Simulated scan of single mutants.
Amino acid sequence: SIRIINNLKSGNLSDTAEFLLLGLSEDPEVQPLLFGLFLSMYLITVLGNLLIIVLISSDPHLHTPMYFFLSNLSFVDICFTTTTIPKILVNIQTQRKHISYAGCFTQICFVLTFAGLENGILTMMAYDRFVAICHPLRYNVVMIPRFCGLLVLLSFLISVLDALLHTLMALRLSFCTDLEIPHFFCELAHILKLACSDIFINNIFVYLVTSLLGVVPLTGIIFSYTRIVSSILKIPSADGKYKAFSTCGSHLIVVSLFYGTGFGVYLTSAATHSSRKSAIVSVMYTVVTPMLNPFIYSLRNKDMMGALCKLISRISSFH
């Protein structure tokens, strides 16, 4: 385009260029359907997760470590989807696919931050269930509010540091005239593919950090649930076993969705040369999983349903 030619003449493409987000489909007839689909999923995600935060805040019985982590997870899910979906909706509505250079790298930074936070909070929730079931007598001593708050703060700081390092390392790269991203948001892996300069150090850092911040927490979750299952099987009564399993069921489903779809994206991108197929699979962990979390936790949880009934009766009494 003329914009890219002018930028090349000025010798500073990175400062003024715009990337093109190709999205999930370039078919004009499909765009209204995609707009309605993404808008619906975004509204359900925001309203559902906001409802969980309101229920936990309003009911004193839910002021426990497990629900503290759940409210933080809901907040992160809202932020995670807000980082990507509004831009998709604007691009579809205006029929423009552009995202500025600064906007693209800002989006990368926020996506990495909230993905890392979600990863950290899911690990904390597994640890919370591990202490509650395997060491019940020590639970109130270990899982004090200050300790839980410090865990969330530590996860936040690690996620922000990781995101900033990835973004700053990507900012030093130079890009050619091909600025098309076959995705619906700026993903680090796609940006690295567009770079003209050497990305060896970037790739090494990506693999290193993925191993530390991805594999280590997942290993911790697997270890926690191995010990949890072992402890539950030792419970003599069937009711006791059911009650213990029910407290972990929702979290286990969310963990399976988050990691399953996340690994699915990378396996799909490795197995196929179609970046568009990889983008479609990415919808699962960036949009669908945050949308399903409120349903999983509210419909499977008697405490949450009880808090919802109390809130509805409280609102009804005002009228």
Rank of each mutant, 00 (worst) to 15 (best):
N6T: 07
L13W: 04
L20I: 13
L22E: 15
G23H: 06
G23K: 07
L24A: 10
E29N: 13
P32S: 09
G36R: 10
L37G: 01
L39G: 11
S40R: 00
I44L: 13
V46N: 04
L47K: 06
G48C: 14
I56Y: 05
D59M: 02
L62A: 09
H63N: 14
L70F: 07
S71F: 02
L73Q: 07
V76Q: 02
I78K: 08
I78S: 07
V90H: 06
H98N: 12
I99C: 00
G103A: 09
C104M: 01
F105A: 02
L112I: 05
G116Q: 08
G116L: 05
N119E: 04
G120E: 02
L122E: 02
T123K: 03
Y127M: 09
D128W: 01
R129Y: 09
V131K: 10
I133F: 04
M143R: 10
R146W: 06
C148H: 07
L157W: 00
I158F: 07
D162K: 15
R172S: 15
S174W: 06
T177F: 11
E180P: 00
F184A: 04
L208M: 09
T210E: 07
L213I: 05
I221A: 04
I222A: 14
T226V: 08
L233P: 00
I235V: 15
S246V: 08
C248W: 05
H251A: 09
I253W: 14
T261H: 04
T261R: 01
G264K: 10
G264Y: 05
H273T: 14
K277L: 15
V287R: 01
P290G: 07
N293K: 12
F295M: 13
I296M: 05
R300E: 03
K310C: 09
R314V: 00
